[in-house]
Computed example of a mutant assay.
Amino acid sequence: MRDAAQWVQKRVMERVHYAGSSILTGSAIAHALIDYAQALAEVGTSATTQIPTLNDDGTPGMSEVLIGPASQLIADTEESPYDEVVDDELVARLRRAADRVRNDSSPSPAAQMMDDDPRNDTSVDEF
């Protein structure tokens, strides 16, 4: 007879390491965050954004992250028994913001905070 653990489907997310701490979030969110941080670093500015996370006990959380030229983000793939954190609207906003920074070379003012609810699909200029 098989062990019950063999039937558990493993879910994969990304653990983002930042400033001596780490957060667990969805893979697409982590990759979009790192892409945006890279774009900001390329033009020498920064921004603050909030991303949905998963706490150690599996409950949803939210983290505020300052990203920019000095950001040293590392995303490690990690298995989790919990459902992946997904926020397609946030991923799209982060990707648009990164594209705008790269194409215009004129990002929003340094360290400007994103709208309180990162899932609000408002203008990218709010980054």
Rank of each mutant, 00 (worst) to 15 (best):
Y36Q: 01
N103Q: 10
R119V: 12
A19F: 06
Q72R: 13
Y36M: 02
R96Y: 07
V43L: 09
L40Y: 10
S46D: 01
P118K: 03
Q72M: 06
Q72L: 04
I67R: 15
D117P: 03
A110T: 09
A39P: 01
A19Q: 14
T48E: 11
G44H: 09
R11I: 05
D125E: 12
D125N: 07
G68P: 02
A32I: 05
Y18D: 13
S46V: 00
V85N: 07
L40A: 03
W7A: 11
V101S: 14
Q38I: 04
S80V: 03
E64I: 09
T59P: 13
D88E: 02
N55L: 03
V86W: 05
I34V: 06
N103K: 10
V16Y: 12
A70D: 15
K10R: 07
T45V: 08
A111G: 10
P81K: 00
A110Y: 08
R2H: 08
A110S: 13
A98R: 10
A97N: 06
S71K: 11
V101H: 14
A32R: 00
G26V: 02
E42W: 03
T59L: 14
S80C: 05
V65A: 11
T77N: 14
V91S: 05
K10L: 08
E64N: 09
R100L: 12
L73H: 05
E79I: 09
G26E: 00
V86R: 13
R15S: 14
T25V: 11
V85T: 09
P81C: 05
E14M: 06
E78M: 07
G68Y: 00
V86F: 06
D117S: 09
L66S: 15
D56Y: 15
P118V: 04
V16K: 07
D57I: 05
Y82H: 12
A75Y: 01
D3L: 04
M114R: 10
R11A: 06
I29K: 06
D116Y: 08
S63Y: 05
V65F: 04
V85K: 01
A110G: 14
T122Q: 11
S63L: 04
A37M: 00
A75P: 03
Q72K: 14
R119Q: 10
S106M: 04
A41E: 09
N120G: 02
R96D: 14
D3Y: 08
V16S: 04
A30E: 00
Q72A: 08
E126Q: 08
L94R: 00
A47E: 01
I67Q: 10
K10I: 10
N120D: 14
P60D: 08
D57F: 10
Y36N: 02
R11P: 12
Q38C: 11
S21D: 07
I74H: 15
A28P: 07
R95T: 12
V85Q: 04
M113A: 15
D76R: 12
D56E: 15
E42V: 06
L90N: 06
P52D: 03
V12I: 05
T48R: 12
T48D: 09
D99K: 11
Q38W: 07
D87H: 00
A37G: 10
G68M: 00
A111R: 09
W7S: 11
G68R: 01
Q112G: 13
D56M: 11
L90K: 00
S106Y: 01
T45M: 06
V91E: 07
P107F: 05
E89W: 13
A19C: 13
D117E: 02
M13S: 07
